[in-house]
Simulated assay, not measured.
Amino acid sequence: MDILLTNIWRFFDPMLFGLVLGSVLIMAWVQNGRRSIVRAVVALANWGRDPFEESGENATYMCRRIDFTLRQQGLAGLETVRSQDAFVLRILGYLVNAKDSKSFEEWVRLEEHAAETRQNISASYWFSAAEIAPAIGLIGTITGLIQLFATGIDPLKMGPAMSFTLLTSLYGLFISHIIAFPIYVRLHSRAEILNAYRSKVVHHTINIANLELADVAPVHFVPVKPTKRDA
């Protein structure tokens, strides 16, 4: 342990670590799309806490609050409902102004899918980084070994060269298991909480729309008879 602490500086090469980390982030970005890296970095602001830990908000609470407001103030009163989740406020605002239940259901399903995709992409990015990092480190190690043996083995220089080469594998494992995977676990857990919460609220608002809004009958189009001019 004393040897490790005394030589701790040998385990950190800022330039090499930055090269491995940058390669991992770029490859994860290539796998998950052009906006994934922005969402993944922004998600780090709240990755360590649950979505509603301060307010204690949950799906059951929100559905009951929506029902209470509906009984007391009618459909228009739903705009006064407050939530920590901007997604819920958006669908309630749309429900108040929706013309029929069918169009509302179609819209809210699309919004739910888009919100779920945005939540999952941050976690997917860090999962990709955790998978890629060991491979990037191994590629660096193999590349260094090839270069080492290609230029000849000098016993006096072999130790430092091997140390430098093996650091890439160390950094790959460190980025994967100490940085990327723990972040993925937290973001995935957070996404599951939010997606389950939103799914229940969406299902509840669709039921309200079916009861409160008129259901427009499907439109049947009659083919136009060809005229003499068309013929």
Rank of each mutant, 00 (worst) to 15 (best):
V20A: 06
E57R: 07
F164G: 13
N207C: 02
P218L: 07
H113G: 01
F11M: 09
R34L: 15
N195Y: 01
N58L: 05
T117I: 03
E54H: 07
G22K: 11
M1P: 05
A209K: 10
S36M: 04
P226N: 10
A191P: 10
H220R: 11
G144K: 02
K157L: 13
K228M: 11
W126I: 06
T141K: 06
E131A: 11
I142V: 15
F52V: 09
S199H: 14
V20P: 01
T143C: 02
E79S: 14
L138I: 15
K102V: 15
I206S: 06
I153W: 02
L95A: 06
S189T: 13
L148H: 08
Y94V: 07
L70E: 05
N210F: 09
T69V: 15
M27H: 01
L167K: 15
W107C: 01
M1N: 02
N58V: 06
I208E: 06
R64A: 11
L170G: 07
I91T: 08
Q72F: 01
H203D: 15
E116R: 12
L78H: 04
G77V: 11
L44N: 03
V88N: 03
L19W: 01
S55Y: 10
G48I: 04
A150R: 10
A45N: 03
E111V: 01
N32G: 05
M162A: 05
Y125C: 04
R229T: 12
